[in-house]
Write a protein that binds this DNA or RNA. Structure first.
Length: 851
RNA sequence: GGGCGCGUAGCUCAGUGGGAGAGCGCUCGCUUCACACGCGAGAGGUCGCUGGUUCGAAACCAGCCGUGCCCACCA
């Protein structure tokens, strides 16, 4: 340590993360520590793929939590000397990014159609070049040790090649097909979306009962619907085949009011006779159930709602109206004809687009689908056999349940930004060509080709993230060294959307699981228990937390509050992290400024040295084990408690005199302990530990690549622990006694020891002079007899004594009650009974002494 | 409709069969030469309710009440 460093340590009494973090991060980058060589095997190495954030995204609390966990494990393994790769990159996020740029255009009074596809896509690339690295920079603020040199993007050249290879192979296997089918149509983005991008919300609608007259009869069938506007596209009325009321009507026809179309009356089990009147209007073009019933019965599929979410030309006089307007107009017309039998409020769940927030219109359209059953089968098996381990275990079942019921995936999107589907059509001979790169001309007739307009679902490309980022389909060194990756942390909301699909594509393409462990972390909610969300305004900005408290504080706080169940964001935990960083800094100042000349080594010379070393090694073992099993909350809290309580509150206070005296052994031991504590905490609090390490005499490079401590069992010493912890308890009792007896804080009280001599620190830390006078004892605390002196207030002492007697009587009573229970003595394990007996005897003795 | 959680100190949460814990907050006392983002000492809980299993239950079982999330095509 040079003079400038010493001066800085002496003068800086408060740790300031802001200056430190930027500087330290630069040093790590300069050291190239985050960019491992692609050498060795995946078993020897350690690799993690970041859940790729959207290019449009800003770091939110979920990223910060996930990042804190991933970074902890990546850093731990890097310190262990493994090639540790944390793959970083961003997702092109089709709908979100297109929406951002469209919004920009709108401000200029333009739409994407004014620009045309090519110019628009060009414009999005420009946007990406300008703003796309924002989230990457924000990950750096967090201290994430990603490989920034290997940054990938789901639309970069090599990645597109991988996507096209996957598409082609799935097509060739017959999994990918094109079909006119009912999809979730999102009028907001004017695109189909997948089932997983739909969220159901409770909505209050009106349930209308409408009379449909039966042809050649004076009877009516009353159908119930919340969407009367879709009646224009009705092509049947269905009843349950077992419903006696309508059995005679099956095979006859109704007449659709307003329209006059003849609707066959059909029988289908799907109809619930209990609901409404038991008659169901069938609209195969605009309802998922009706669509299936329609296909089963070969019904005509009509559409009256267009892709813009308004009534289409087919709706005749209602064309162009919004759904709400059409509903109003149609209900009015029906009412005029006396067809409305009833209207009642009705609460039910309705699909909404997770992307645009708009109500989903089920529409029939020509889309690309991927059959999932064959892909799912091996992905189910690897999880069943725990080749991919899902933690906590209840999510394994959730995964399996979903996978066993998996349905075809609608993979086409009517967008411009994304992977344009690699299919070309020949207008001349109607040939369809699927290829990994654009063919020149039609292979059959030599005609001009036209590429499919649709792009792929964004998740189609994220599904291959773990291997596409490593260079697949080429056989790259990265792929050989780092695939399969070691583990994945994820929020449960993308377990199906992303995790399941990675497992399926991993097995199908590189032919191996993409990761061995999946850890499903909890969700951090807003302070009031609501979801953190931008639209609710409940988000808490991690960057603000970093600005105010430092990245280490946020990381510690998030890990400490994380758990297997959802938790509310806790400012107190972040503050605890900030306080810990400050405490680390100050305890280190004490040690470094007084011990800097020593050589770090465990050199115990007395029982308290053996005690702290024993505690240290136990903590190393325990914290390591907890990190390895993803128990981050307990890992950080245990490290905190050891450092603060054992090391600072007790050991440093105990050894101060020796340290100030310049004793070499204690200096060496302290440097040894400090080194191990810094290394132990580095994966979770990288900045402050790295900063302190730069002052440590044992430093031989950055802490980021320093060895991670391995617990030294030979230093574990239960006897020393018992002795010192006994001394600590005695100290606490003596202090409490003083406090309650009203003794001034600074006063030293005369006392003598009667019995086993306590560890030598007890006297100093409790401010009792054990070489007492010959005055009379006024109280007993363990082996300590407090002697009469001017500083004692007799009444307070008497009161204190009485209080202790009360406590003891209660204890004795409790013990006697327990031991007089025959069942307890007969059936409880012998050591439990023995322990009770021992306690009872001790309490009785102490009570006898005080009486 | 099915599934999974949760209900413990004023607040946020640990604790899965042998005497109720942490952080924050609160009270009292400390300008003790690392740190007031600190030090010391305290107060504060019939562990949602009711039954059951057990010598012993916050923990295990059943029911109830409250609360959250996921999945699901009943208009």
């Amino acid at each position: 340590m040079d003079a400038a460093q010493r001066k800085k340590l002496e003068e800086t009494t408060r740790y300031d993360p802001t200056e430190v973090e930027a500087r330290i991060f630069g040093e790590w980058m300069e050291g190239g520590y985050f960019h491992p060589e692609a050498e060795g095997t995946p078993e020897e190495n350690f690799s993690v793929a970041i859940p790729p954030p959207n290019v449009t995204g800003a770091l939110h609390m979920g990223h910060a939590l996930n990042g804190s966990m991933q970074d902890a494990l990546v850093r731990l393994n890097r310190m262990r000397g493994r090639n540790a790769l944390w793959i970083l990159g961003t997702d092109h996020a089709g709908i979100a990014t297109q929406a951002v740029v469209e919004k920009e255009l709108k401000k200029e009074g333009k739409s994407r159609h004014d620009l045309g596809r090519e110019a628009f896509v060009e414009r999005v690339w420009e946007w990406k070049a300008e703003y796309g690295s924002r989230i990457v920079e924000q990950y750096k603020r967090l201290g994430a040790s990603c490989d920034y040199e290997r940054e990938r993007f789901t639309l970069d050249e090599g990645y597109v090649r991988a996507v096209y290879r996957v598409f082609k192979q799935l097509f060739d296997k017959g999994y990918i097909y094109r079909d006119n089918y009912m999809v979730n149509w999102d009028p907001g983005s004017r695109s189909a979306i997948s089932d997983l991008e739909v969220e159901n919300r409770e909505v209050e609608d009106v349930l209308f009962s409408i009379d449909y007259p039966v042809e050649d009869s004076d009877r009516v069938l009353t159908v119930a619907t919340v969407r009367p506007e879709t009646m224009l596209a009705d092509t049947a009325v269905a009843v349950n085949p077992d419903d006696e009321r309508y059995r005679d009507l099956v095979g006859r026809h109704c007449v659709l009011p307003l329209v006059g179309r003849r609707l066959p009356i059909i029988a289908d089990e799907h109809v619930d006779p209990e609901f409404g009147t038991g008659a169901l209007k069938i609209t195969p073009g605009h309802d998922v159930n009706d669509f299936e019933i329609g296909r089963k019965h070969g019904l005509e599929e009509l559409g009256v709602i267009g892709p813009d979410g308004r009534m289409s030309e087919e709706a005749g006089e209602y064309a162009g109206m919004t759904i709400a307007e059409a509903q109003e107009a149609i209900v009015a017309a029906l009412r005029a004809e006396g067809r409305i039998r009833a209207e009642e409020p009705y609460t039910h769940s309705v699909p909404f687009s997770h992307r645009s927030g708009e109500r989903i219109e089920p529409l029939i359209s020509l889309q690309w689908f991927c059959r999932m059953d064959e892909l799912a089968r091996p992905a189910i098996e690897v999880v069943e056999r725990d080749e991919v381990r899902i933690t906590p275990p209840q999510w394994k079942r959730v995964y399996l349940d979903w996978m066993r019921e998996i349905r075809p995936w609608c993979i086409s999107r009517q967008l411009w930004w994304g992977h344009r589907i690699p299919v070309w059509y020949c207008d001349e001979c109607e040939e369809t060509i699927v290829a990994e790169s654009e063919p020149e001309r039609c292979g059959a007739c030599g005609g001009e080709l036209r590429q499919e307009e649709d792009v792929l679902d964004t998740w189609f490309s994220s599904a291959i993230w773990p291997f596409a980022t490593l260079g697949w389909p080429d056989d790259t060194p990265e792929l050989r060294a780092f695939y399969p990756t070691s583990f994945l942390t994820t929020a449960r909301e993308i377990l199906f959307l992303w995790v399941a699909r990675m497992i399926m594509t991993g097995l199908e393409f590189p032919g191996a699981i993409p990761f061995r462990d999946v850890y499903v972390h909890s969700v951090i909610q807003a302070r009031d228990g609501r979801r953190m969300s931008k639209s609710l305004g409940t988000g808490i900005d991690p960057l603000e937390e970093i600005d105010v408290h430092g990245a280490d504080a946020l990381r510690f706080g998030l890990l400490a509050m994380s758990s297997t169940q959802d938790v509310r964001f806790s400012d107190a935990k972040v503050q605890q992290g900030r306080d810990l960083a400050n405490k680390l800094w100050n305890a280190s100042r004490l040690i470094l400024l007084n011990a800097a000349d020593a050589e770090p080594a465990a050199r115990p010379t007395c029982v308290e040295d053996r005690w702290i070393l024993s505690r240290l090694e136990r903590t190393v073992a325990s914290v390591t084990e907890k990190l390895e099993t993803y128990d981050f909350a307990h890992a950080v809290q245990e490290a905190y408690s050891f450092f603060w309580r054992d090391l600072c509150d007790w050991y440093l206070e105990i050894v101060k005199p020796r340290l100030y005296d310049g004793e070499e052994e204690v200096a060496a031991t302290l440097l040894y302990a400090l080194e191990r504590v810094l290394a132990l905490l580095h994966p979770t609090m990288p900045f402050v530990t790295e900063e302190i390490w730069s002052f440590h005499p044992g430093r031989d490079g950055h802490l980021a690549v320093h060895g991670f401590p391995v617990a030294d069992e030979s230093l574990v010493d239960p006897d020393a622990e018992e002795d010192v912890e006994g001394g600590i308890r005695l100290t606490q009792r003596l202090r409490a006694w003083r406090d309650l007896a009203g003794v001034p804080a600074a006063a030293t009280l005369p006392a003598v020891v009667d019995g086993v001599e306590p560890p030598s620190f007890v006297s100093r830390l409790s401010r009792f002079d054990f070489n007492g006078t010959d005055a009379a004892p006024v109280a007993s605390i363990g082996p300590v007899r407090v002697l009469e002196s001017d500083q004692l207030d007799a009444d307070a002492v008497a009161a204190r004594l009485e209080k202790r007697r009360e406590e003891l009587r209660a204890e004795v009573e409790r013990g006697e009650r327990k031991l007089s229970n025959e069942g307890f003595v007969a059936k409880a394990p012998a050591e439990v009974v023995e322990e009770e007996r021992g306690k009872l005897e001790r309490y009785r003795n102490e009570l006898a002494e005080l009486s």
